[in-house]
Nucleic acid binder design. Structure first.
Lengths: 345, 345
DNA sequence: CTGAAAGCGCTTACAG
DNA sequence: CTGAAAGCGCTTACAG
C-alpha cells in the first residue's frame, strides 16, 4: 500500500495525496476529505524512509541517557517521552554507560539515523568541549549546564548544583554537624559532582571551616554498590564523621546500608543527606533528607525548547530550575556540639 | 557526502561502492581496499533512509518496555542494548505505561518505522491475543510466556512464575509462617501476577491450607507508592499476618516502609519476600528475601532468538529461564507456631 | 487548486 | 569482477 494506491483509489494524483498527507494549505476541501477517508479506510501509513529521504529531514528526536539504572533519568525520560509523543513527534532513547562519551555517540547516531534533535540526560562537559562542534542539530542538555560552552545549537536546563549543595551543608551545619564527609562523583571539573563539591566547600568556608578533600571526600559512580563501597572506605578512614552528604540518592541508599553494616545507625550515629529526590528516597528507612530536582520542569522546558529550536531556529538558553531541600528523617540535630568542635577537625 | 562522491573519489562506480559497503563477495580485493580506504578517510556513513527504502528492510530493532520505572526491565534493557549493538544492529527503546496496550503500540511503531523485530519487556497476553496477529515481524516476549498463544512469529523467555512463587510460599511455610498475605499485580488471567498467585495457592493447598483472595490478597501496580498503599490496606484488614509476599521487589520496598509506618518491624513482626532480585533488594534494611530472575539469561536468549528469527525464519520457542530463591534478612523463622495455627486462619 | 515530473541516496538484477 | 540503469515511495518546485 503506497501513496500511489491512495491516488488511484481516490481519483486524485500522487501530488495531491502527498499534499493532503502533509497538511499543505492549498488543497480543496473536497480533495482533502475524499483522500483522508480513503487513507483511513485502508489504514494507510506513509513509508517514513521514503519520506525522510525526500525531505532530507531528520526523522525523530533522540534521547541519550547516561546510565540506564539512573532513577532520576528514568523519571525525566518518562516525562519527556509523554510530552514529545503528545506533540506528534517520534522519540527514541539510547542508553550509555555513566562514563561513556555521549557526544561521540550522538555524532554516530546522527550519521545513522538523522534525528531532528537530541536531548542529553546527563552530560560531561569535557566531551561536549571535545566534539560537540561536529553536531549540527538542535540539542538540549538536562541536569547539567552547558552555558560556558557557548554553542549556538545547545541549550541546557539544570539545577544550580553549587547552590543546592551549599544549602545542604548549611543545613547540616545548622543542625550542629561539623565533621561532614562527602561521597559520589569525581573531581573532574566538567562533571556535576564538581559543582556540588564546590557548594560544599563554599558553605564550609562561610562557616570558617575548610574541606579536606583527600580526607573527607570519596569519589564513586552513581550506583548502589559503589555508594556502599565508597562509604565503607570513607568510614574506614575517618570514623569521627557525624554526617555524610551523598551526591546522589542512589549512592545514599547504598551508603545507608553500609553505615548499618559498620554497626552504626542513621541518623543516630551518622546523619545522611542525598541528592535528586527520586521516589525511592522517600521509602527508605529512615526517609532521606535530600535535594529534590524538579524533573517535571526539566522535562517540560527541555522538550519545549528543543521543539522550538527545531522549528524556528531560536537562540539557545541556559536556565536554572528551582530545587527544594526535602527534610526527611535521616538528619539528626546535634546538641551543643558547636563550641567544642568549631573549625575543621 | 553520498555514495556517489565515494565512487568519484575512488574511481569506481556507484554499484561497486555499494557492493563493498554491503560486503558482497564478488568484488576484487583491490576495489574493496581502495573504496574502504576512501570511505574511512572521509568518514562516510550511508544514508539509512535511502538504504532501507531500497532494501524494503526494516531498519532497527524496537524494544517496548512496560513501565519506565521498572528496575528489572532497566536491567534487562541495558543488557539487551549492549548485545544488539555488539551485533552491529540498531536498537531503540520505547516506554509504555505499565497498563498500556503494548501490542497496539507495536503495530503503530511498525507502521511508522518498520523495525526488523520487537522485543517486549513485559506483556499482557490479553493484548497479544487481541491484535498480535496483525504484527508480521519476528518478536520476542521477555518475562512472560507467550506459549499458549501459538503465534508463529512470537518466541518468549520467562521465569516459571508459578513454580517460583510456590517455592516462596513453601519456604515461608517451612519457616513456620501460616498467615501469609500477598500484594501486587491484579487478578487478570493474562498477567504474570496471576501465575504467581497460582503458585501461592498451589503451595498452600499442598500444605492443606486454602488461600482466601478477598481477604489475604491486595492488588497494586508495580511501584513503591502503590506497594506502600496496598500494604497499609492489607494490614488494616488483617492485622494477624506473619508474612507478606510482594509480587515485585519494588512493591516490597514500599511494603517495608508501610510496615514500619504501621509501627511494626521486618522481619520481627512481619516477614517479607519480594520477587525479581533487582540490585536494590540487596541494599534495603533488612536485605530482601526474593526470587532472582536471571536477567542476563533473559537478555542473552531473547536477543539471540530474535536475531535468528530475523535472519533465518526459524520456529518460535518458549523457554523457561532458571530462577533462584535468595535468602535475605527479611524472613524470620517462627518457633513452634505450627501446631497451634495449622490450616488457614 | 491540481497534475506531471524530477530527484532524494541507495541496491540489485542485467549485461558484459 | 564491474558499470549502467531501473526503481524503492515519497515530496516539491514548476506549470497550468
Amino acid at each position: 500500500m503506497t501513496i500511489k494506491d491512495i491516488a488511484k483509489l481516490s481519483g486524485y494524483s500522487l501530488g495531491t495525496v502527498s499534499r493532503v498527507l502533509n497538511n499543505h494549505p492549498d488543497v480543496s476541501k473536497a480533495a482533502r476529505e475524499r483522500i483522508l477517508s480513503v487513507v483511513k479506510e485502508v489504514g494507510f501509513e506513509p513509508n517514513s524512509n521514503a519520506r525522510h529521504l525526500k525531505m532530507r529531514q531528520r526523522s525523530a528526536i533522540a534521547i541519550l541517557v547516561k546510565g540506564s539504572q539512573n532513577m532520576l533519568f528514568s523519571d525525566i525520560l518518562e516525562r519527556i517521552q509523554k510530552k514529545i509523543t503528545a506533540c506528534g513527534e517520534e522519540v527514541f532513547a539510547d542508553y550509555l554507560d555513566e562514563d561513556a562519551d555521549e557526544v561521540s555517540h550522538a555524532i554516530q547516531i546522527y550519521r545513522q539515523r538523522r534525528p531532528r534533535g537530541f536531548i542529553f540526560l546527563g552530560g560531561d562537559l569535557e566531551y561536549f568541549r571535545k566534539s560537540f562542534g561536529e553536531l549540527h542539530v538542535p540539542c538540549v542538555l538536562l541536569t547539567n549546564s552547558g552555558e560556558e560552552l557557548k554553542y549556538v545549537n545547545l541549550s541546557s536546563f539544570s539545577t544550580d548544583d553549587t547552590e543546592a549543595s551549599e544549602q545542604v551543608i548549611d543545613y547540616l551545619y545548622s543542625c550542629g554537624h561539623r565533621r561532614i564527609g562527602v561521597i559520589g562523583g569525581n573531581l573532574s571539573v566538567d562533571q556535576i559532582s564538581f559543582r556540588r563539591l564546590l557548594g560544599v566547600k563554599r558553605s564550609l568556608e562561610k562557616h570558617g571551616m575548610t574541606f579536606d578533600r583527600a580526607e573527607r571526600y570519596e569519589p564513586c559512580r552513581y550506583s548502589l554498590g559503589e555508594g556502599y563501597e565508597a562509604t565503607r572506605r570513607l568510614l574506614g578512614r575517618c570514623r569521627d564523621l557525624s554526617a555524610i552528604f551523598a551526591l546522589g540518592d542512589v549512592i545514599a541508599i547504598g551508603a545507608m546500608r553500609a553505615i548499618y553494616d559498620e554497626g552504626l545507625s542513621v541518623p543516630g550515629d551518622i546523619s545522611l543527606v542525598g541528592y535528586d529526590g527520586i521516589a525511592l528516597s522517600q521509602y527508605s528507612m529512615p526517609r532521606l533528607t535530600t535535594i529534590r530536582q524538579d524533573t517535571e520542569q526539566l522535562a517540560e522546558l527541555g522538550v519545549k525548547k528543543l521543539l522550538e529550536s527545531i522549528n524556528y531556529n531560536v537562540d539557545p538558553v541556559h536556565e536554572r530550575v528551582a530545587f527544594e531541600l526535602i527534610k526527611g528523617e535521616s538528619v539528626k540535630r546535634m546538641e551543643e556540639d558547636d563550641g567544642i568542635t568549631g573549625g575543621k577537625l
